[in-house]
Design a protein around this nucleic acid. Structure first.
Length: 278
DNA sequence: ACTGGCTCCTGAGGGC
DNA sequence: TGCCCTCAGGAGCCAG
């Protein structure tokens, strides 16, 4: 499931392959993504200036506007020679003058491909997004201030893209474990010290996951088709019933806002400070 | 202003 | 072997 590390891994894989190349053809095989894919004719012939990321959105900057792409739940992008055989669910294909084909594959079609002429920052999907977790303004005091007296579970708060972008279910579980915070605690009840641990944990987890090329559980692949390797480093996600790597207690799984949530009762207590890691 | 629930979709996995 | 059921989840959207 693509979260920030998977999107960033994809961005780093794609940009060097396609930058400064002219787009020669756009093929939409299935326009039924999250929103119907409608790409303007004017796109063909434009040159790709850069590929940036905002939250989990990839932004392909062309001469007159920006292609906004979200991988959704099951999406991936691959760059291949244009004659390579198509796979099932290769919904959108961009062909570049160098002979490279960039293909958007998305079995569940939760992703999107949109065109925004002019400045992409004006797009309604991007204007309400919160801070980037790997930038300097992601701080404990920012989170504490955002949380105020909110009663929502801190895990849901952390996954709210209007607060901080890019942290999905897997990395929220991992970060809360490392920060020794019970996922169910109200966001407003977490102390500034707790939020400092959470900020540190989120940054560490995301950076480590990017280094590993992301997490591949089912669908995600890097641009070259290889999986990401962070799944090997997960402490809690997908490990319910297994022994906690710190204290040995059995990890517990619950549903929190319809999301699988795994934690350690001992290391992530519902009050006070958790066990200190060795 | 918050909060929780619904929705889109396909493939995997379990039960029988 | 095959069928049916449930579940997974990002995030926009809406109702209370």
């Amino acid at each position: 499931m693509p979260e920030l590390p998977e999107v960033e891994t994809t961005r780093r894989g794609i940009e060097p392959l396609l930058i400064r190349q002219k787009l020669t053809e756009v093929i939409v095989r299935d326009h039924r993504l999250r929103w119907p894919v409608k790409l303007p004719d004017e796109l063909v012939g434009q040159t790709l200036g850069s590929v940036t990321r905002r939250g989990k959105y990839l932004l392909f900057h062309f001469d007159s506007g920006t292609l906004i792409l979200h991988l959704g739940m099951s999406g991936s992008l691959r760059c291949l020679p244009k004659q390579s055989p198509l796979r099932k669910h290769d919904h959108v294909e961009l062909l570049f003058e160098g002979g490279t084909s960039m293909r958007f594959n998305d079995p569940r079609r939760f992703g999107c491909v949109l065109w925004q002429s002019g400045d992409a920052a004006d797009h309604p999907l991007l204007t309400k997004l919160g801070v980037e977790p790997l930038e300097a303004n992601f701080t404990a005091s920012y989170l504490k201030n955002c949380a105020g007296k909110r009663q929502v579970a801190v895990k849901s708060f952390l996954m709210n893209a209007q607060v901080v972008v890019g942290v999905g279910n897997i990395y929220a579980n991992e970060s809360l474990f490392l920060a020794r915070i019970r996922p169910t605690i109200a966001a407003g009840a977490v102390s500034l010290v707790g939020y400092q641990r959470l900020v540190d944990a989120v940054v560490m987890v995301l950076k480590d996951a990017i280094k590993a090329g992301g997490t591949t559980l089912q669908d995600f692949a890097q641009v070259d088709g290889n999986p990401g390797y962070f799944a090997n480093e997960l402490h809690v996600y997908g490990r319910a019933g297994e022994a906690c790597s710190v204290c040995g207690a059995a990890l517990v799984e619950i549903r929190l806002q319809a999301r699988t949530t795994v934690f350690c009762r001992k290391c992530q207590p519902s009050r006070g400070i958790g066990r200190t890691f060795a």
